[in-house]
Structure formats: structure tokens, C-alpha cells
Design a protein around this nucleic acid. Structure first.
Lengths: 137, 137, 137, 137
DNA sequence: GTGGTCTAGACCACG
DNA sequence: GTGGTCTAGACCACA
């Protein structure tokens, strides 16, 4: 479980955390049945208020990715991976749709868009190798 | 009319408006020297708070797309088109970078990403024909 | 907009409020496009913390019943009624399923269950006439 | 084995267990004078915290269904069946009251409610045949 | 010790 | 003035 949040970002903390957990499930880092850190524990590690973590767990439970039980903890749901992947693809499709629409408005050709996409892909692959540690103070 | 906003969208009105003006410049619908509607006029036409329009004009001025001549109004800057196109591409690149990163996290191949991009492009092209952005009542 | 919550009930406040709004939409008391009370206003009227109201609005928005926009307010979604009725029936079906299962365990016949249901229906109809005002102190 | 619990359900374990014992008594699976498993034994079999079982025994004792004889164990009370059946009916009546009230709010007619009830009854009858409540591993 | 609810009150983004 | 986010900290239900 390697999650981190950037307190300086303008993206809400709970969104950052939610996306990371989403991805962890979609990519199999978190597997069905795995227990998640307790709300309080994760809150301490991320230097975040417990309510914020609780909100993320609650929403992911509503989406069917997690199952929480009072007294025992929060776990990855049995069918979480499928749900996570489906959602991940849906989000990707949505973002590409926006990009394509913008490309259209800029009068780019399909070939030009494809080239830019390939560039972005290469950049993402390269970026993967670097570590981007979490700076807080 | 070259601008319209969707009051039901969760995208902030000022962002929508700003993007549309950006595009209008980048694609040549608005040309250097053209005069823009007054803040009040545009606000009425879009059924939007004047503060919102004013904010957009102010920010686009700061970006160098618009210039305001005291007493006579707001106009499209001389080098606006170049600025607009450059910014448009930068935004597009940024969005594709995010999409590519997500695709990477989802373990998609470059080919799969390209296919999704092409799909999005086709969808954008198809959608373009059905746009009727002018009238609101 | 006549909503009330019982602070003494063991049912969470946010659940009580959510159910009432759900019903108001499903029964047409709230109609598509209607503006809801502001978070702060409703919080004062119900003697509840604004966060509690905000949570309800947020969840109902996630379910597609409400639409909230920063700066302007919260409104009933266009297709809210259909969503609300569908959900209402689903909940009813779920409760009847539990009741039927229990009746089965108690070795009741279908006829006996039906009689009890009719009784409950009559009681509900009668109860409808009484007012049950909200006591807070 | 006449009891089982579902660790994945959001219904609290102690509620599940209590209901099952209730039913076992009401339907005669457990008869007056029968000895119940020890707290520790049942806890192990159900993979549940002993506190949970103890709580259920305590509450059922308070309701008059069980009696505990010092040093020899917990037994089903002599008049347990009557008590259990009465309580079962009371619970059923309560649930139907809630359902009827909801149906009323949704503007359903008595006939529609009856139809839904019959459907639920049939579904419960059908479901009953496929139950295999005993084994958990 | 687990998660769940609620309050009080601050600060930000938007119109 | 609208909703949205976040913190701090209390209290409850469950195991």
C-alpha cells in the first residue's frame, strides 16, 4: 500500500486519495479480500484528517470497490477488480473524448492527434521510471 | 454567436466561457482587431452574472489575447491567434499526458491507447455536426 | 418543502433527511427544476449541522436526483422523478422480500401474509390523517 | 447446524445470529429444554468473537427465550416457542407497516401492494429450496 | 480497536 | 451568498 497525497495541490485531498486507491485496485496492487489500513492509521500516515480518509472509504464502498464492517475493518470487495477496471476505462475514454474535441477545434488532423498521443505515451513511459516522492514541509 | 455556456454542466461557467473564447481566437472566428461585446451585453445574452464575464475578459487580457482600450472597449490582440493556438496545443498536450499516464496505469498497450484515441476522434467528428450552439430559448 | 427530522431517533439524521427528500421527489412534491433550500438554511430549520445537510445533498446528487452548482444552489434534476420512483419501488420490493422470507420462516400461509399486509395498508392509510409534528426540546 | 452467519453482510453479526436463534425456536427446530452450545463452542463454529455470542445469549435470556442454569449451561425456556412466535409476528407486522407506509407514499394502490407482496412470497418460496446454510469452508 | 455519525467552525471557489 | 473541502474532536455501535 503505497499511497501519498500532495497537500499543496489544488486537487482535493480526497480526490487524490480516491484515484490512487482506484488505480491500486484496477491494477491489482490491491486484491479482493485484502484489508486496507484503518481509517485512523492511514490518516496519520498521510497527515490528513480521519474524516477525509473515512469519506474516501465510504465513497469507494458506495461504488462497490470496498466493503467496510464496523468493528472489523475495510476490505477490497470480491469483484472490485472488474469494477475498478471498467471505471478506469470509462474515465480514460472520457478524457480522450475531451482531448479529441479540443483537437478538432484546433483544426488538427487525426494523424497529428495520433502523433501527440504517441508522444504523450512515450513521455508517460519514461516518467514511470523516476520516483516522485512526497514532499510535505 | 460564437459562444454559449451550459448552465447545467458542472464545469464552472467562467471556465466554459474562457475556453470558448480561446477557441474562437485560435480557430480564427475572432480575428485580431475585432471588438468584443461589452461585459454587460455578453452577460445578458448568456444569462450569466456580469462578474463572471468580467473575470474572463480580465484573465484573457492577462494572457495577452485581449487588449482593452480605455473608453472604447475590449478587442482581440494583434498576435492573439498565435498565442491562442500555442496555448491550445499546450492544453491538449497536457490532457493527453494525463490520459497516457492513466492508460499506463491500466496496463494498456500503445496500440490500445491509439485505438481509443481514434474512436474518440471519430466520435468528436460525428458530434460536431449536430451542434446547435446559438439559441437558448 | 416540509421536511423534519427526529433528533431522538436512532436512525441517523442524514438517513432520515435523505429518505424524506427521496420521497418528496418520487411523489412529485419536489419537481424537476425546483430549487432546494440552501444548505445553511435547511440546517438552521432542522437544527442540524450544515455538514449533515451537505452530505445528504451530495449523496442525492451522486444518485442523480439533485444537481448542485457552486455559487447558485441545489436543484432537482430533470429526470429525478423517474429515478426516484424506480428507487422507491426497489426499496419497497426489498422490504417485502425480507418480510416474505420471515413469514415463510414462521410457517405462515400466503393468505395469512396477505391479510397482515392488508391490515398494515389500512393502518398506514389511517395514520396518514394524523399530523406528527416535530418535537425538539 | 441450525445457525449460520454471513460475514460479508452489512447486517451486524449479532443481529443475524439473534434472528436465526429466534427463528429456530419459533419454528420448533429448537425445542423447550434443549441445551444450547457453549458460548465458546458456537463462537468457534461461526468464526465469530465470543463476545458476540455472549451478547446474543444474554439478550435472548432477557427476552425470556433462553434460561441459563448456573454451572450446567444455557437452555431453551419452557414457554419459548410461544414467546418466539409472538415476537416473530410482531416483527413481521412492524416490517409490513413500514412497507405499507412506503407504498402509500409512492401512491400505490392496495391491489398493487398485494401483487408485490405475492411476488415476494413466491420468490421467498423458490429461494428456500436452494439454501445450503451449513458448511462454510 | 474498528468504522459511523455528528458538531463546530475555518477557508476556498464560484456567481 | 452559494456549495465544497478540510480540520478537530466527541460520542456511538460493533467485534
Amino acid at each position: 500500500m503505497y499511497v501519498s497525497v500532495d497537500h499543496k495541490s489544488r486537487v482535493p485531498l480526497y480526490v487524490q486519495l480516491k484515484e490512487q486507491l482506484h488505480l491500486a485496485v484496477a491494477t491489482g496492487v490491491l486484491r479482493p479480500g485484502d484489508q486496507l489500513p484503518t481509517v485512523r492509521d492511514l490518516a496519520v500516515r498521510l497527515r490528513v484528517n480521519p474524516n477525509t480518509v473515512a469519506r474516501v472509504y465510504r465513497e469507494l464502498q458506495a461504488e462497490g470497490l470496498f466493503v467496510s464492517r464496523q468493528g472489523s475493518g475495510t476490505f477490497v470487495a470480491d469483484d472490485a477488480r472488474a469494477v475498478g477496471q471498467a471505471e478506469g476505462r470509462a474515465i480514460l475514454r472520457q478524457r480522450l473524448a475531451e482531448a479529441a474535441s479540443l483537437a478538432h477545434s484546433l483544426d488538427l488532423s487525426a494523424a497529428e492527434l495520433r502523433r501527440l498521443t504517441d508522444d504523450a505515451w512515450q513521455a508517460a513511459k519514461a516518467g514511470r521510471e523516476e520516483v516522485t516522492p512526497d514532499e510535505h514541509d
